[in-house]
């Protein structure tokens, strides 16, 4: 790190003539740098003042801080320039952005004035402060600037380090303590005591078993030859559509499709109805409802206690049939034959 700083410092006079002239005025290169950066900095600072979105304000402050780092380096404060980038732009502003994301970026200022006339008083006070400060600082007479060539003879970081670890070592230690205390304080302040018992995976599983209901994951939506989307319920082993196989959101929105259409065609194809000439897709309904529709009817009827017109279907559907599709269609075939015979 210090090697890098020393390299930067050694390369600096070539890039940016930072040394002051005899009269205490800066070089032309530094003046150009200043007049390029100063308007940018003032505009970015005004951006902080006027930005509607907090993230934009934070980015404006980052611009100001990086520009300040440039000015520090131009003013023979190489160590501070690097520290400015690392500490302010790298750590402090990133911390700001983290907290912004934590608190919510969409929160904008309320425009309601709690104190009447605060805005105008604030503007007046701010402009007044600026005028007074700039006036005093700008119009005061200073001794000709001496520049830091002597003080920085052994490179700037070395000079600063000699002062910090020499004259100001006690302050340095105190500041170290302060940082530790600040870190601990931040931990304590943001620590949340748990008021309710923690609900982990085990607790969730136990609650599920205790409350009954389905212990396994819900069935996946139906997959049909002509339709493979999440809005069609799957058929259970008994041929009934499983309502809960469709995602709850779709059910709530009423976007659930009817399984009858797709299930009916599959039934007829698997039953060989079309191939055997027993009917076509359109005429099959004349023979009686196909299995899917019948199962639906049974399903609906099962909730209203067994209708008279489909006792066979109800029996067939209530029997716990095999889970495989073949057995299911065979079952359906039999039922279909029965019905035709009747």
């Amino acid at each position: 790190m210090s090697g890098t700083l020393a390299t930067v410092h050694a390369a600096l006079p070539a890039v940016l003539p930072a040394a002051l002239e005899e009269t205490g005025r800066t070089s032309t290169g530094e003046a150009v740098l200043f007049w390029v950066l100063a308007p940018i900095m003032v505009l970015a600072a005004l951006g902080l003042l006027f930005a509607r979105k907090t993230v934009h304000a934070a980015l404006a402050v980052v611009v100001v801080m990086v520009s300040l780092a440039f000015l520090y380096v131009a003013q023979d404060a190489v160590f501070l320039g690097v520290a400015q980038v690392v500490v302010y732009t790298g750590a402090v502003m990133m911390l700001f952005l983290f907290v912004l994301m934590l608190v919510g970026v969409d929160r904008s200022d309320s425009l309601v004035e709690t104190i009447r006339g605060q805005r105008w008083i604030g503007v007046l006070a701010g402009v007044g402060l600026g005028v007074v400060l700039a006036g005093v600082v700008g119009r005061a007479t200073y001794a000709p600037a001496r520049g830091l060539v002597e003080a920085n003879a052994a490179s700037n970081p070395v000079g600063v380090a000699r002062l910090i670890f020499g004259d100001h070592v006690l302050a340095f230690e105190v500041v170290g303590c302060l940082l530790v205390v600040a870190a601990l304080g931040a931990l304590v302040l943001t620590h949340r005591r748990r008021l309710t018992p923690r609900i982990g995976q085990r607790e969730l599983a136990e609650r599920r078993v205790r409350e009954g209901g389905s212990l396994v994951p819900l069935p996946a939506p139906g997959v049909y030859a002509r339709h493979n989307a999440m809005d069609v319920p799957a058929l259970g082993p008994d041929g009934r559509p499983l309502e809960h196989s469709v995602p709850r959101v779709l059910r709530v929105r009423g976007q659930e499709a009817d399984a009858r259409e797709y299930a009916a065609r599959i039934d007829r194809v698997l039953a060989g109805g079309w191939a055997n000439g027993a009917g076509s897709f359109t005429s099959a309904t004349g023979d009686g409802p196909p299995l899917g529709a019948r199962a639906l009817a049974v399903h609906a009827a099962g909730q209203e206690d067994a209708p008279d017109d489909a006792p066979g279907g109800a029996d067939g559907a209530d029997e716990p049939s095999a889970a495989s599709a073949d057995a299911h269609t065979a079952d359906g075939d039999e039922m279909r034959d029965e019905e035709v015979a009747r």
Binding site: L20, G24, R25, T26, E30, A31, F34, W35, A38, M41, V42, A45, L46, L48, L49, V64, L71, Q75, D109, Q118, R119, I121, G122, V123, A125, G126, V127, L129, G130, V131, L133, A134, V136, V137, G138, Y142, A145
Partner: peptide, 24 residues
């Protein structure tokens, strides 16, 4: 360029920061 320009810039930035504290 005199070094005073830096001081004036610092004063302006300070005033903008103070106004931000007062207004936002």
């Amino acid at each position: 360029m005199s070094l005073t320009n830096y001081l004036v810039l610092a004063a302006i930035l300070f005033a903008i920061g103070a106004t931000t504290v007062l207004l936002r």
